[in-house]
């Protein structure tokens, strides 16, 4: 009986140990991006969404896949700025994260839905130091190539994007930060959230 218990215990322990072993076999930053981007590409090519009436469905499916790649809490905190973020109530923070991620998704997914036909993403390399990484890619068009770099951070073992750099250093997050900062100088967090909501609604209609 005792031996039985021991066996059980060892089995349980080994299972416990095995689980992290599986988990530590985590994807590298570049691999983390390759799979979902490939999925998005497939969705974009999927004939099921060819009909223009299906564009909204397609956007939702893409959003499900693409949204996973980003850390919207970190993105929100950075666009607002650390100091100002502290002045947001937790409810405002939550509202902001929700509306801003939707705003970003909506903006950029519509763009790739419209333009994808003649574009191609080439993965170049990844630079990793500690829990920060940079994945470098190129967006290839007929006449030009646009370098796009993804800044990533390891959060709970998974790499998530927190900033996108266009043309080797133009930060999308910084750009929003500049805009939001000047809005927040004159308006309350609530008003900023409303602005984003309004713009979203205007787009949907």
């Amino acid at each position: 009986m005792i031996t039985n218990r021991w066996v059980m215990l060892i089995l349980a322990l080994s299972l416990l140990c095995a689980a992290p072993a599986v988990c530590t076999e985590k994807l590298s930053p570049i691999e983390t991006l390759k799979k979902p981007i490939e999925k998005v590409t497939n969705i974009l090519h999927d004939p099921a969404f060819k009909n223009s009436g299906k564009k909204n469905d397609q956007r939702n499916v893409i959003w499900k896949v693409a949204g996973e790649m980003f850390d919207f809490t970190e993105i929100s905190r950075r666009t607002i700025g650390k100091k100002a973020w502290k002045t947001f109530t937790s409810e405002e923070k939550e509202q902001f994260i929700k509306v801003f991620s939707e705003f970003l998704g909506n903006t950029y997914i519509s763009k790739i839905q419209g333009e994808y036909q003649n574009e191609q993403i080439i993965f170049l390399n990844e630079l990793v130091r500690g829990n920060i990484a940079l994945v470098r890619t190129k967006l290839k068009r007929a006449s030009l190539e646009i370098p796009i770099d993804y800044r990533m951070k390891k959060i709970e073992g998974n790499w998530k994007i927190y900033d996108v750099l266009v043309e080797n250093g133009v930060s999308i997050i910084k750009n929003y930060h500049i805009q939001f900062k000047s809005i927040l100088r004159k308006e309350s967090p609530q008003q900023l959230i409303e602005r984003l909501e309004k713009k979203l609604v205007a787009r949907k209609s």
């Binding site: 250093g169 133009v170 930060s171 910084k174 750009n175 500049i178 805009q179 602005r195 713009k199």
Partner: peptide, 14 residues
């Protein structure tokens, strides 16, 4: 949200 300001920042960053 403010294209003018956004453009200015893109220009400077670029």
């Amino acid at each position: 949200l403010d294209p003018y300001e956004s453009m200015r920042d893109v220009y400077i960053q670029l």
